[in-house]
Amino acid sequence: MEAFISSTLFFLTNDPDEETIQLKTMELFAPLPQLFTSGITFGAIYALVGLGFVTIAKASQMINFAQGEFVMLGGMLTFFLFKEIQLPYLLSAFLTIPLVMLIGCLLHLLVIYPLRKASLPILLMATLGASLFLSSASALLFGTLPKALPPFINRPPIDIGPISISLQSLWVVGATCLVLLFLYLLSHRTLLGKAMEASSTDPLGADLSGISRHLMIFIAFGVSAGMGSLAGIFITPIFYVSYHSGTLIGLKGFIAAILGGWGKHSGAILGGFVLGVVESLSVAFMPSGYKDAIAFVVLLLILYLKPKGILGSPFIDSRRW
C-alpha cells in the first residue's frame, strides 16, 4: 500500500517538463494491441484459478481461500522435483499434479471434514488459516527466495505485426481451454459431476437420493487442487513463484469467479478474461500504480449493475438484492 501511494504521489508531483515523456493521442493507442495480448494471458491465469474456486463452490457453496496456495504449491513442487531432486522437467510437472491433489484432499480431511457441522463463515476462516499454514510451510521447506522454471519450449517470442507473443502464454491459454473442456465433460456427461453439483444446489435432495455429500466435497477439493497446481506449473515459467505469491493470485481468481457469475464455470472464464484485459488496458490510460486497484473498481462497478455477475449466479438469490 505504501509503495502504491508513493508511486501515485511521485507521478502526480512529477511535472511534465521537457524530460518526461508526453504521450500524444496517437501514441496512446499504439500499445493497445500488445496490452490486450498480455491481458489475455493474465485473463487465462485468473480464469484457471477462478475455475478452482467454482469447482468447490459447485459442490458445497463454500469459498476455499487456500485456492491460491494450490497454485503456489504447483510451481514450488515442480521446482523442487526438477531442480533439487533433478527429475526430468516433464516428469516433475506430471508428478506435481497428483501431489497437490493429495494435499487438497488432505486439506478436506483434516480441516473441512471435522468442521462439517460448522457454519459457512467458520469454514471460510478455516480455509484462510489453511492458506496461511500452507504458505508458511512452503517458506520453511523450500526457502523464501523466489524461484523460476525454464519455459516449456525455449524459443523466441512470435511477432505478429506490432504484437509479440511468448509461447508460454499460448500454453496458458491452451491449458485454460483444456481444463474448461474437462470440467464441462465432468459436470455434463458424468454421473459424478452431476452428483457433485446436486450436493450443492439441493443438499436435501442429494441426501435423499443417496449421494454422499462429503465424498463429493472431498473429490471437489482434489479436482480444484489439481487445477490450481496446473495453473502454477504453467505460469511459473512466465513469472516466478515464491511462498507468498499464492495470496494475490488467489484473490484475483476469486474476483474473476464473482465477476463472471459465482458458481458457473463459464462465468469464471469470462470473468477472468474481462479482469485480465481491463487491468492490462488500464495501464495505457492511467499510471501503472493503479493496476491492482482497477480490478476492484471493475468488480464494484459490474456488481452495482449486475449483482449476480455477468452471466448470473445460480447461488445468489436475487430476492435478497
Binding site: N14, E27, A30, P31, L35, A284
Partner: peptide
Amino acid sequence: KVIVSPETHKPTDIDMTPQLTKIKPV
C-alpha cells in the same frame, strides 16, 4: 541525456509487460 519514465513498478509486480509496452514506443 537521462529520461525518467513516468511509469513505475511496485515490488509485488510479477509482470511489467503493461508498463514496458507503454514505454516501448518512446
